[in-house]
């Protein structure tokens, strides 16, 4: 046995924890958006619904209106800040809800009778294999589009993938000898899940949260773009792109700015997910 391994280990661990520059940049951008989701309404320079400049709709960027005005002469910056709570907040909320529900069901499934587990897993696989956009459309047609409906529908749509992912990670871990050792020691189920299994699937959960966040952000902005998501007078970034489409031909900032914000959000999250999943492998 050599002791060299011990000496080099802490540096290795630090290297493993160090994120690549791009991912750190992603984290910074993402942090800024989360901040805006929380305080955007308070910080917005104008009332997002006010026709501040109704004579000059789709106005250019200026000192008064940093990102120009929209097709009704409202301040684009204020509308983006106000929409952050939907475009950033809703995916955060629903991805977290789906992850928690999926994880709870996934871990419970490994504890119940095998027949129940099989049936539940088949149901979840079926749900998971459905085209999510189509099903979201069906649900919006059935229930109408409102904030509570969107939250419930999107959460339900993404529980199955969380279930599948967390369950398979948990099963892999529960076959490890250290879990077996704790089981023969006589440890209870709660200890097994909390101390032996959960800490080892945290990276999987974080990665899954990030990927789900991206999918939901894309889905939600898409629904709003179709006019079936967030309803006026409120607007998320997808809706902002849609309502200012008339400005597309001359590349008005009212249509480009929310599009760029949306892109920066999803790309930032993708970069963070990359860093987390690489850390998991190392």
């Amino acid at each position: 046995m050599t002791d060299t391994k011990i000496e080099t280990a802490p540096t290795l661990r630090r290297a493993r924890n160090r994120w690549p520059v791009l991912s750190l940049a992603g984290a910074a951008v993402f942090g800024a958006w989360v901040f805006l989701a929380l305080f955007g309404d308070l910080l917005a320079p104008y009332d997002p619904g006010e026709f501040v400049d109704s004579w000059d709709s789709l106005g250019p960027m200026s000192a008064t209106y940093p990102l120009g005005t929209d097709y009704l002469g409202r301040d684009v910056l204020s509308r983006i800040m106000s929409g952050a709570k939907y475009t950033v907040g809703l995916p955060m909320l629903t991805a977290a809800l789906a992850l928690i529900l999926g994880a709870v069901l996934g871990i419970l499934a490994t504890l119940v009778r095998p027949a129940v587990d099989t049936a539940l897993s088949w149901f979840m696989d079926t749900m998971n294999s459905l085209p999510s956009t189509i099903f979201a459309l069906v649900a919006v047609a059935g229930f109408g589009s409102s904030l509570p409906v969107l939250i419930v529908v999107i959460t339900v749509l993404y529980v199955p993938s969380a279930y599948r992912n967390i369950r398979s990670a948990a099963i892999n871990i529960s076959r490890m000898d250290y879990v077996e050792a704790a089981r023969v020691r006589g440890e209870g189920t709660a200890h097994l899940i909390r101390r032996e299994i959960l800490p080892n699937i945290v990276p999987n959960m974080l990665t899954h949260f990030g990927i789900t966040f991206i999918y939901i952000a894309l889905l939600l902005s898409g629904l709003s773009f179709l006019g079936l998501g967030i309803q006026p007078p409120e607007a998320d970034w997808g809706a902002l792109v849609a309502e200012n489409m008339v400005g597309l031909s001359y590349a008005a900032s009212a249509v480009l700015a929310p599009a760029i914000c949306l892109l920066s959000l999803t790309i930032a999250m993708t970069l963070m997910v990359d860093a987390i999943s690489h850390g998991k492998d190392g």
Binding site: I214, L218, S221, G222, F225, G238, V241, A242, A259, L262, L263, T266, I267, M269, T270
Partner: peptide, 8 residues
Amino acid sequence: ALSTPSFL
């Protein structure tokens, strides 16, 4: 590409 909404 995969972070960009199809509508964009």
